[in-house]
């Protein structure tokens, strides 16, 4: 059953039966979210401007983060109440891959089952940011990306975990 915006009260997005999340939507920054961003500019001695792949960029105040950043660095941080990025740490030697925000919960899976499985199959370390960014460190990166693409394509379907296990797991044993 497919429901459209306006079918129910306070429904603004398309929804598909069985999946609680709307199918696809733009990321809206919320305080407390952990996100991955890219440093795009520096205001001298005041702040860094960080693109978080939303429809506006955030700033990180130099005084509060105690860390030196370069333009182009990818950073992990928490959004604070006044739209700043805090608790920043730099992500190094990792591949940054973007997925639709709404499909992120499928990539993490219930109790993190899916992301653990991807890590096992590709032998790499993975992490996610709320704004739909996945970073992949070491192992078979291309395999991890193939699996993530497959999950995104099947995000509206059931039993994706079993599907991924049977498609990528068997080949590994042979």
């Amino acid at each position: 059953m497919i429901t459209l915006p306006g079918d129910k009260k306070d429904q603004y997005y398309l929804m598909i039966d069985g999946i609680e999340n709307p199918i696809e939507y733009a990321y809206i920054p919320k305080p407390g979210d952990i996100v991955v961003g890219r440093v795009i500019a520096e205001k001298k001695n005041v702040a860094y401007i960080i693109d978080i792949f939303s429809y506006y960029a955030l700033s990180a105040m130099i005084k509060t983060i105690n860390i030196e950043l370069k333009i182009g660095d990818f950073v992990l941080g928490t959004i604070s109440q006044n739209d700043n990025l805090e608790d920043i740490r730099v992500i190094k030697n990792a591949l940054i891959y973007r997925v639709p925000t709404s499909k992120l919960s499928r990539i993490v899976g219930t109790k993190g089952q899916m992301i653990k499985l991807i890590g096992q199959l590709s032998k790499s370390k993975l992490g996610v940011g709320r704004n739909g960014v996945v970073w992949i460190e070491g192992g078979e990166i291309s395999k991890a990306i193939n699996i993530i693409d497959d999950i995104v394509r099947r995000a509206h379907m059931k039993d994706v975990l079993d599907y991924i296990k049977s498609k990528y797991g068997d080949k590994d044993e042979n």
């Binding site: 915006p5 306006g6 997005y13 696809e24 733009a26 639709p100 709404s102």
Partner: peptide
């Protein structure tokens, strides 16, 4: 607009 996932009040 629905396909883009932009919030709509109604169709």
């Amino acid at each position: 607009l629905i396909d883009a996932g932009i919030a709509l009040r109604d169709i």
